[in-house]
Computed example of a mutant assay.
Amino acid sequence: MLQSFFTGLSGMLGFSKSLDTVSNNVANMNTPGYRGTSTFMRDVVGENGSGFGATVGDTATRTSSGDIKQTGNETDIAIVGEGLFVLQNESGDYFYTRAGQFIFNEENMLVDSTGDFFVMGLNEDSNLERIDISEQRILPPVATTNIDLKGALASTDDSHQITPIPIYDASGISHDLTLTLRNPTDSINLWTVEVTNNLGDILGDGEIRFNSDGSLLENFNQISITTSLSGSEQTINFNFGEPNTVTGARQSLSGASNLVTGTVDGNAPLGLTGVKFNEKGVMILQYSNGDTHDGSQIAVASFSNEQNLERSTGAMFTAKDDQTPTIRRPAEEGMGKIKGESIELSNVDLTQEFADILIIQRGYQASSQVMSVANELIEQLYNGTRG
Rank of each mutant, 00 (worst) to 15 (best):
D213P: 11
I165E: 03
L217T: 08
N221T: 06
S212H: 13
T196C: 01
G172I: 15
I236F: 09
I225V: 14
I165A: 10
G214D: 11
F210N: 05
N189M: 07
G200S: 07
Q222Y: 06
E218R: 14
G206P: 05
L190Q: 15
T235L: 01
T180G: 03
S215G: 03
L181R: 11
T180W: 00
F220W: 10
G206T: 09
L217E: 08
F220E: 13
S232H: 12
N189K: 13
D186K: 10
L216C: 02
N237K: 08
G204H: 12
L203H: 06
N219I: 02
T196Q: 04
D186P: 09
L179R: 04
D186Q: 15
S224W: 00
N237G: 02
S187E: 08
N189T: 14
E218I: 05
F238A: 00
S230L: 12
P166E: 09
G204F: 08
G204P: 06
S224R: 13
T185H: 09
E194M: 10
L216D: 04
P164W: 11
S187N: 04
Q234M: 13
A170G: 03
Q222M: 05
S174A: 09
N221W: 01
I236Q: 04
P164R: 01
P166Y: 11
R209M: 11
P184R: 11
I202A: 14
G214V: 07
T196S: 14
I173S: 07
G206C: 09
N219Q: 02
F240P: 06
F238D: 00
D213N: 14
Q234P: 03
V193K: 05
L177P: 02
D213Y: 12
T185A: 15
L190E: 10
I225T: 09
G200V: 11
G206D: 09
S215W: 08
I173H: 13
D205I: 04
L217C: 00
S232P: 06
P164M: 04
Q222F: 07
G204D: 03
G214A: 04
L177D: 06
D201V: 10
R182A: 15
R209V: 08
N189D: 10
I223K: 03
D205S: 15
D176R: 02
E194G: 01
N197E: 00
G206F: 12
W191P: 05
T178L: 01
Q234Y: 11
N237F: 13
L181A: 13
D169E: 13
T185D: 14
P184C: 08
P164N: 06
I165M: 09
L216Q: 03
D176V: 04
F238Y: 14
G206Y: 02
T235C: 04
T235Q: 14
N219S: 12
Y168F: 15
N221R: 01
V193S: 06
G172W: 12
H175P: 11
D169L: 02
V193R: 06
P166R: 08
D169C: 07
L203E: 04
W191C: 06
L217A: 01
D186T: 13
T235I: 00
D169F: 06
S171V: 09
G231D: 02
E207W: 09
E233N: 07
S174F: 03
